[in-house]
Design a protein around this nucleic acid. Structure first.
Lengths: 223, 223, 223, 223
DNA sequence: CATGAATGAGGCTTCATTCAT
DNA sequence: AATGAATGAAGCCTCATTCAT
């Protein structure tokens, strides 16, 4: 399922003769991500996507059965890639806390590199009622499973406390990450400054999250 | 997905003479929540809401300017009540950690009592692009502010560590809570058993979240 | 092609307050018959029907699920009436040959009075592949059955020869009638002159058909 | 409905080098007949025809200007052959009644041998509004003319009564035949049994039709 | 000849909203 | 206050046809 295709082309309206079948398909997917991110799934017309891709809208229906299938394809292929990356990290041999930091950094950097992808995943897919379709629930479940495995690894290795439910801890960690991303996506928290500032900010946030997750906010010896 | 969409009111098509203006208005709002929870905002027709409320659909426009206003009214009135409750808790004098536990319990119990309300708030309002409208951003902001104030109180009182950014901590806490709610709403995690089991489960989750939030997952003395 | 498309009602854009729900529905059906007769089912746009009926095209969908349902409703209601008339004649006590003459006259007069109805029945319904749907096949079957019963009555009464298969005779009779109607509808045979001429012509044809049907074309004593 | 749409040719996607221009063209026509018979003209996509023929749909436009031309070509070439056969029979020197029997047998056997051809001719060409186009009206007219000539021959030879209008008699004869065919095509009348039974049935029907046509259904000496 | 990617006009249908009663 | 008939803008989708390769 995971077909993580790095489409590296920036679409122009002028036809580029060298493109093959797959590339045109990706062109449409990229355009759809851009438009979905800008207007939302329901607010996006198929013709908007086609215009963004620089093609006739009829062509969309050569590659996708309908508008819905575009969205679910984005989910399958893009989320799939992300999921693989997370699972690779999770399966690593680094200390559990380092792996969690890597996941957090992956998520936050993902947003920085491909904000539209993340925006669509977060707003239109993950939260939509479409999200409740089995295949997609399962995909989210796999993500949670991967992280939970890291937590259990940490507990087994004596790195994490064993008196805490791994599932709850996973919820806490991923929920926090998700909330940060959503806030960034929606612009609740606006970050001023250039790319360097953003990268620095993301790192700070990731480290802050992990610090609390690891050591808690209570004063040492408190509680 | 948990069957959380049962109508909480059984309307009949026969007019009930005793109802006044306000009651009919609420009837529509309740019906809208039920239908939005079931079908989503975009998937809900005005006629669906009217049928659920047992009235003619033209009548909806006596009470609300348009469909959009129904949603924002739900937001204002229902979210408003929730927000006030949270702010009341936040303004209390109990220890910061107790206040956070109360907030968590409030949220989780809210889901248990009125799953449709929470579902609509979470899926259709909070996450929608409407969320980025100033009034509603402000409302979410107020919620974050209230919780952040609790965190700062805890830091000021020496209850919480001061070397952690209060904003990040707030994100972590609310994000975790939000994620749990979303998972419950979408049925990622299914809870078997009767109402007692659910209540117990919610309490366990709330306490687990707080425990990590306070003391971290790392082994004492570890790191 | 015979001018068979005169609207049976002259719609105006001004609403006629006296019309009730049923009348508006019939207005649409009548308009549809006119338009289907003129342009064929596939060539008729829903907006054409609405314009012919003097209403907004959206209103069509208050009364009918879709375009297809308009056609099948025409079939059910109009063909149903015709079928009843034929069955009434068939169940009569007149000599079989008189009853057959009455059927022929009914059919031919029906064409004269409501050419559009007949045209749609003949061209768009009876012959279409839609015709092969069970309900409609059965309806045509009922027509054949009614006529076949008359033939059998005639045989039982000693009026008709018993050495001929009643089914084949029915085919012959109805087929001939049908072919005449189709030719008239399609204008293969054009009839000059006024209404009197048409009526006279139809009578001639009906009597000619019956004469052959009864006595054959072979010279007396021939064969 | 009788399953009469089995492809009579099994095309493969692999090119067959031996085929020349004409063969590929016929391949398309045969495929079109199969598809038109199955789905009707309007319900048949050009791509359906191409798939049935085992070629790319673009190639259809090398052989035919458009979809419409495919249908009219079928009409011209297939109906043309049938028309010639009928005219040959009609021009013969056999007794008129024998010639009519031959025509009836030709038609009924044609259906038996090439049900799809007849189905398309009957349903899509003859009855369509296309039928009212001059060239095609003329073709049907020629058929009627040929049969009418036989009837007149019979009258001139003293074989048929002269007091009956030859046109009406022709309508009766061809209409009956047509109706039988249509019923067979649409499956109103289902014939059980093997090929032998069908052939026998067709012969019976043809003879029955002719018997009535010649001698009438009225009891000898009756009327 | 052959392919099938590309085009875009055209039509059906939905549904929020208005309005006469 | 209540009804639901009426309106029509908007958008999805189909599919015949063209065209570059």
């Amino acid at each position: 399922m995971p077909r993580s295709s790095e489409s590296t082309q920036q679409q122009t309206a002028t036809p580029e003769p060298g493109r093959g079948r797959t590339e045109k398909r990706d062109l449409i997917l990229d355009a759809a991500i851009t438009v979905f991110a800008r207007q939302g799934y329901h607010g996006a017309r198929v013709s908007d996507i086609a215009r963004e891709a620089g093609i006739a809208y009829g062509l969309v229906y050569h590659y996708f059965k309908n508008k819905e299938e575009i969205l679910s394809t984005i989910f399958d292929e893009r989320w799939g890639g992300f999921l693989e990356a997370v699972e690779t990290i999770a399966a690593g041999s680094a200390p559990a806390s380092d792996r969690l930091l890597s996941v957090a950094a992956l998520v936050l950097n993902g947003f920085q590199l491909r904000p539209d992808w993340v925006k669509v995943l977060v707003l239109e897919i993950q939260r939509s009622s479409r999200f409740s379709e089995p295949a997609q629930l399962r995909a989210v479940g796999r993500l949670l499973d991967a992280v939970e495995r890291v937590v259990r690894d940490g507990q087994a290795a004596g790195e994490f406390r064993s008196d805490i439910d791994a599932g709850v801890a996973t919820y806490l960690f991923m929920g926090a990450l998700d909330f940060v991303i959503t806030s960034l996506v929606l612009g609740v928290k606006r970050i001023e400054g250039g790319e360097q500032d953003q990268r620095a900010y993301h790192l700070t946030v990731a480290q802050g999250l992990l610090e609390i997750f690891l050591n808690g906010i209570a004063k040492e010896g408190g509680d």
